[in-house]
């Protein structure tokens, strides 16, 4: 999948889901993209570097979300 297409698809889907949650597991993203994990990873890594996605870590597990979305930022006093 082309990067721009992947980005558009992912942002669109994550925005739709924002009403209920803002953080997603890697596999959720790979499923949205319809790519195998290794291929999805390349796209997702680039989206992190481009600031389209950011990480959220529980310490033991990692999740992804769009920067500035969701309730964690306020709860963690890290609103930017």
């Amino acid at each position: 999948m082309e990067y721009e297409e992947a980005k558009q698809k992912l942002v669109e889907e994550l925005t739709k889901k924002l009403k209920s949650k803002s953080k997603f597991y890697f596999n959720d993203l790979a499923n949205i993209l319809g790519e195998k994990p290794r291929d999805a990873k390349k796209l997702i890594n680039r989206m992190v570097t481009d600031g389209v996605l950011e990480y959220w870590s529980s310490g033991s597990t990692s999740m992804y979300g769009m920067p500035g979305t969701g309730k964690q930022a306020a709860a963690e006093h890290e609103e930017k």
């Binding site: 209920s20 949650k21 953080k23 969701g70 309730k71 964690q72 709860a75």
Partner: peptide
Amino acid sequence: DKMCEIPLAIAA
């Protein structure tokens, strides 16, 4: 509901 995303708490 203000501090947490309920689906994430449920999934945890």
